[in-house]
Design a protein around this nucleic acid. Structure first.
Lengths: 331, 331
DNA sequence: TTGTAGGCGTTATCAC
DNA sequence: GTGATAACGCCTACAA
């Protein structure tokens, strides 16, 4: 790899002179002739400044880290949506993205170390309430913005989970549904908590009895027995905490011959529904994940630029973006 | 940020002593008491070695770059599959991933510079034939492994496009189809070229006339007029170059009321078909993208480790992974 | 067992 | 205009 020193030697100049000229040289503090010689040599030798050395010197890498405490990678629709949008947003701002790969279940301490080893200027984080990693990060100087799920003590960009769930209940109620189940995940996600709470409040306000607005926890996998169980409880409307769960349930219904929406009406939440096939259009709530990512990046850049001023928590506002209910034919 | 020097000062030691102890200290070249003091202080002060400085010194970052010359991000099913699998594979090898965000259409030279500025040890590349960036990279010292589409002069991990297409033609022919169209993209992708060639050869061998094995180029977007045009040409089997194209076409058929598979039989290629909904199962060829990513990483690590030995092109083998035809109900 | 010296490649601050 | 000099934080070789 060819360095500035190599160029300097070639031209009988000092290395800093080369560096100055190649760095824009705003003050015109170099002879025209020298400048041309330097540019020519740089071109000819294929000089590329070493970004690692520059980062060490400047204390800045222009790299944004992305990490999730959940066990998913970019193939997960949600994370893919976030990271994909970040890629676009980063390109405009001349930033790059680092995906911190941590084995799921590795110690929070270990991950914490990797995140603050100086390789990223800031972090886009997706985590859940009570995550030990978040606890650690809160005390650190690393700028962090949470996405989708707000974390106490961090800036965050989220979707209007409450509004979305209200809209969904409105729609379901208007279609005549009176018996409901909310399928929640095992993990404690703040966004899902909000949805769940609105689900309960809205239905209670409408006079639904406790047994007609049940909360049920499940994981991605085991939707087979759940489908059967739900069917047994007569016709009802199932609000799934995300689209993936809803699709799993739909799939099960197909396998078990359960009529949708006659026996089970199904709604999702995410806006990550698949529109490739027109056959079955899931009712869901569209969350603008691309916008979430863009805004999160904006806030993160602000945090990074204002680093050091008046403590880190200066900007820890939470931005909440509007959602919209998407109708379909599963309710 | 707290450095090794800080610890040294605190304990009245020299900085290298601290560094040595914290780095494993295999030779036991330190007093037990000193070691304990150092570890204690490191713990107490929350010391985290600066990875940027370390990288500068060691000439190694333990970061793998990912770049595509095409205009897509991680939300593209294919790229998502590759990057997602890479995330898993990297975690095991204690590597991290960098997504080089380059605005589509930015100069190859610019991108070339960013890729070899020392921030990544190697590169996973997805590109097409004749890409100027690939030309540049071929001359550089940066270890590169191409995925999905082989590039002359690079190591590559690909799928058995030829075998897959042969299997697909076998299946279509056995189902009685005798009139075919191959939908190809505008770009010149080596993998697609292989599929196209086998498509032609296999059909010619079976005695299909030229007008019954047509090649048609199109982009993602404009499948609307194409669908109508295809329908007009009577019942035929359409082999789409990838699943996304196939789904677009299916969608169009639905909108225009074209019967699938009676009027148009449709097959994809990728294995990125959506199985969330059981309704319409696309006939396609499953490409093991996760395996592609894993193997590519393996080769890349080999290249990195053997860097400097006997020129770079030492290992530029091409690994070709087996595929399988997936039946469905669209043909 | 520990400290000193040097360098990775860059940028910034000064003299000259 | 340009060249020393220093510093970013780390690791390695060698000397003490």
């Amino acid at each position: 790899m060819i360095t500035a020193k190599d160029i300097a030697r070639e031209l009988n100049l000092s290395q800093p002179t080369v560096s100055r000229i190649l760095n824009g040289d705003e003050g015109h503090r170099a002879a025209q002739a020298t400048r041309e010689r330097v540019w020519e040599a740089a071109q000819r030798l294929g000089y590329q400044p070493n970004a690692v050395a520059r980062s060490l010197r400047l204390g800045r890498t222009d790299i944004i880290g992305v990490h999730t405490s959940h066990n998913y990678d970019v193939r997960n629709d949600f994370l893919g949506a976030i990271v994909g949008a970040l890629q676009c947003a980063c390109a405009e701002r001349h930033l790059d993205i680092m995906l911190h790969s941590g084995l799921y279940g590795s110690l929070a301490e270990t991950m914490y170390g990797k995140l603050r080893d100086g390789r990223v200027d800031g972090l886009i984080l997706h985590s859940s309430a009570g995550d030990p990693l978040a606890e650690l990060l809160r005390e650190s100087a690393l700028p962090v913005v949470a996405v989708a799920d707000a974390l106490p003590g961090f800036a965050a960009v989220t979707c209007d989970d409450a509004g979305g769930m209200k809209g969904l209940v409105d729609l379901l109620w208007s279609r005549g549904h009176r018996k409901f189940v909310f399928l929640a995940p095992q993990e404690n996600l703040p966004s899902v908590e909000k949805r769940r709470r609105v689900f309960e409040v809205e239905l209670r306000n409408r006079g639904a009895k406790a047994q007609d607005r049940v909360i049920k926890r499940l994981d991605f996998e085991n939707s087979a027995p759940v489908a059967a169980e739900l069917r047994a409880q007569g016709p009802l409307a199932v609000c799934c905490w995300n689209d993936k769960t809803a699709y799993n349930l739909l799939h099960e219904c197909h396998l078990q011959g359960i009529q949708v929406p006659q026996e089970l009406a199904i709604a999702g939440f995410d806006g990550l529904r698949d529109e490739k096939l027109p056959a079955r259009l899931l009712v869901t709530v569209r969350c603008p994940w691309d916008e979430v990512a863009m805004q999160a990046l904006g806030v993160l850049v602000q945090l990074i630029e204002s680093r050091g001023e008046s403590g880190k928590g200066a900007i820890n506002k939470e931005i909440c973006l509007p959602v919209s209910v998407l109708d379909g034919d599963t309710i």
